[in-house]
Write a protein that binds this DNA or RNA. Structure first.
Lengths: 197, 197
DNA sequence: CCTACCGATCGGTAGG
DNA sequence: CCTACCGATCGGTAGG
């Protein structure tokens, strides 16, 4: 019994993993269940023994990613570091996820609009909330004099989107290692381009 | 004769404009020619009197956007400003395009992967070239001591992706005006978050 | 997990 | 610009 369940779980895991790759490469709407089945090595109809629908796969990917980031920001918020260091921690985590959990992170960011209701609204809400919590850290940093007087909401959008640049790093031939990449990105985002006079 | 041509041109323009909106909202693959025809006010079959195929619409959107940015970077490269100011000019232009030419810019950035070959490869090449030219400006700025010793390619990816954050600004209720937005973004990207000690 | 199949919808064409 | 229609493909189900 345990064996069967483990087998089922791992086959479902395989389906989700192959789906993430396919959704990233072609987009959710342009990915067919027949093609997905083929990469998994079964017939299309057999997929439905493991998942309920195409949309359920997307739900699974999107909410997995959302949970990962929600847990992290909770942990960071309750820490005792400076706000600048909290931001650096979050950025490092985003970069790390972008490197290690690439397919899922990209798909959730790019394809969540295809979620059926009420999942779409739910996901959008979680996004909004996450950004507000991130902005609150920046605002606290401004109040405490660690951070320039910038618009916090704009800064959050910049940070979160900037990290999507790693997408291109993934496909690049000249692979910088992941740590070096993270250090470069954080330095640029936190200290800017301009050389201090 | 002129009248007919002008009429045709404007109907084709309407189709491209409605298509851009639809492609942005639902994605290219999830947009049907029947739905597009409906928003234009004609039958699906009649679209083909104005355009050759669904993919041709995407080509038109993507290469229009590519041309706009290629022309701009050419102009900036040949200017006499400092490299920091060249970067600021490019960023301002990107932000301006994101505000004024929103649908086309977003669609070209998000949906170009659906271009048929050889357009896809061509577009990808133009992207790569644009980024190299952008990076060359940063590298020159580093050599001349205007810019910190950062990885130029990484900086380009950050800048270009960061600007996509405006996407969220568009849907936001609390509308900051476009100039204010541009100033905030440029300050954050060029001078960073951290308050100088 | 498969075979066989459903109704719906897709991009596009013929012919006027 | 329309009516009528094509073949292909879609997500998903029945039944075993």
């Amino acid at each position: 019994m345990k064996k069967i369940e483990r087998k089922k779980a791992s086959k479902k895991g395989l389906i989700l993993q192959r789906a993430a790759t396919m959704f990233r490469e072609r987009g959710f709407a342009a990915s067919s269940m027949r093609d997905l089945a083929e990469t998994v090595g079964i017939e299309a109809a057999s997929l439905y023994n493991h998942i309920r629908s195409k949309n359920e796969i997307l739900e699974s990917i999107c909410f997995d990613v959302a949970n990962i980031f929600n847990e992290k920001i909770q942990e960071v918020e309750s820490g005792r570091q400076s706000n600048i260091n909290k931001i650096e921690s979050l950025l490092r985590f985003h970069i790390e996820q972008m490197v290690d959990n690439y397919e899922n992170v990209i798909v959730s960011d790019r394809e969540w609009r295809h979620l059926d209701e009420p999942y779409r609204a739910n996901f959008q809400n979680q996004r909004r909330t996450y950004r507000k919590r991130f902005a609150a850290i920046i605002e606290d940093g401004i109040v405490k004099g660690e951070i320039r007087r910038i618009d916090a909401a704009t800064a959050v959008l910049i940070m979160l989107h900037a990290i999507n640049g790693i997408e291109s790093w993934h496909r690049s031939k000249v692979k910088m290692n992941a740590d070096e990449l993270a250090n470069n990105m954080i330095r640029i985002l936190i200290d800017g381009l301009r050389k201090p006079a």
